[in-house]
Nucleic acid binder design. Structure first.
Lengths: 106, 106
DNA sequence: ATGAACGGTAAGAGTAAACTTACGGATGGT
DNA sequence: ACCATCCGTAAGTTTACTCTTACCGTTCAT
């Protein structure tokens, strides 16, 4: 009863789309490259990319006949903030661990 | 092709389950109470609770005929850590904002 | 100009998730 | 003992997501 458009969770609920995001985190890539790294057809990748683009998580630009997709920082951080808001509410009873993200990545 | 059992995202991908978690964050509640606050039938709530319980996000204990559900801190933080791992990888190109969670909740 | 590579979209099939109603078991009160 | 409340599960329906194949437009090279 709730399309993934309605909330941010659903967009990344699909493991293929998460894989695409992680792929693009390494470097911007064309559709053909993404499809080669995935076990699904190229049109299926295009459909996932459309969803990711519509939700503002990725963007693309043309390079010849290729469309180079890359992450959209604004959309990604916005979604992460949205999820953080959920976690803060969900874990409000356990205040201690909310700040566990003081990870100074050594 | 991926049941929500396979990963943590799917479990909270359903907005009803997120609402249940937020409800339980306020206080432990019986099934009947949760169902009263939701637009779906009581059995549907039971089914969601089963999924949440199987994934370790909630637990319950009996009180007379009632089953009082409450959050499971261990499972919740484990899932949040899992999501954090994704975000760290996805946003690794934007190191600055990864530590934005230095929020000392004023 | 012709052909090839790239990619978006339409149409349709298959599958899984989420809901409902119906039923049965367990506990507690009278 | 009997009835009411609470709740889990089974069965079945509906919805919507994901995928595939097929087709078409665009861009570049020869």
């Amino acid at each position: 009863m709730v399309t993934y458009q309605d909330d941010g969770w659903g967009v990344l609920g699909d493991p293929t789309r998460r894989t695409i995001v992680l792929q693009l985190a390494q470097r911007p890539q064309a559709v053909v490259e993404l499809a080669a790294a995935l076990p699904i057809s190229r049109p299926a990748v295009s459909q996932h990319l459309k969803i990711l683009k519509d939700s503002g998580l990725v963007a693309e630009h043309a390079e010849g006949t290729r469309r180079i997709y890359h992450l959209n920082e604004v959309g990604l951080t916005a979604l992460r903030d949205q999820l953080d808001a959920f976690w803060n509410r969900a874990l409000s009873g356990y205040q201690d661990i909310i700040d566990k993200s003081t990870k100074e990545t050594p």
